[in-house]
């Protein structure tokens, strides 16, 4: 019988929520779902802090909840309102098909991660790793199937969440200062990409990345 720890359960739930994200072309729904997955990841971080006795993880959990799950979605929603874009009309693959393939990817990540050596003392085994890999693959699928700049940013954020979940469940905590550095880089990156989205809307009067094909050989 499969017994999941609380941490594994939380991160797997966030992987499933991310799979739902692929199924909707409404950017606002995507942002809500992204916020929810990230809150779950913050909770998982808090839960990991207890068995590992690493209070620094609590701080990281708070930072993730505050910055990644609230501030970033709010910033992106503000950007969307400013440029009046709410739907990713031109998904390259029909959303239901994309969502089902992302569920397939969840299964695939189970197969991929079974061979990984079990980490000791993290409160999560390879189920946690499979949630991380599934998030990475889902983010990639989002980036591949969506056309709007905002969706690309969301896809990147999902990939980053996946890598974080992998680190959380497979290692005994990255050093605090490095975790903060990564968070800072991601925040600045999202801000820059958001500002560029403004400029793309201003200059091209759309934010459809698939139409930016002037530069080629």
């Amino acid at each position: 019988m499969i017994v999941l720890t609380n941490i594994e359960l939380t991160v797997l739930m966030s992987a499933v929520l991310a799979a739902l994200m692929v199924g909707s072309v409404h950017l606002r729904v995507n942002l809500w779902l992204y916020g929810a997955t990230t809150i779950l990841i913050a909770i998982a971080t808090g839960l990991t802090a207890y068995p590992n006795e690493e209070p620094s993880l609590l701080l990281i959990a708070l930072l993730i909840a505050g910055l990644k799950s609230i501030a970033i979605p709010l910033f992106l929603a503000w950007t969307m309102d400013r440029i009046h874009v709410h739907r990713d009309l031109g998904a390259l693959v029909a959303p239901p098909i994309a969502m089902h393939s992302s569920i397939l990817l969840l299964g695939l990540s189970f197969l991929l991660t079974q061979g990984l050596p079990t980490p000791s003392g993290t409160g999560a085994g390879w189920y946690g790793a499979s949630a991380g890999i599934s998030l990475v693959l889902t983010g990639l699928l989002l980036m591949l199937t969506r056309r709007l700049a905002i969706s690309q940013i969301i896809g990147f954020l999902v990939i980053e969440n996946g890598i974080y979940v992998f680190a959380l469940t497979q290692t005994r905590g990255m050093p605090l200062i490095i975790e903060m550095g990564i968070l800072l880089d991601v925040l600045v990156g999202v801000m820059l990409a958001g500002l560029l989205t403004f400029k793309i809307q201003e200059t091209f009067e759309h934010i459809d990345i698939a139409k930016l094909t002037d530069l080629k050989d």
Partner: peptide
Amino acid sequence: RTKHALEATWKYLI
């Protein structure tokens, strides 16, 4: 700040 520069920057960043 031209169209091409914007496209190149977006590609580079992402």
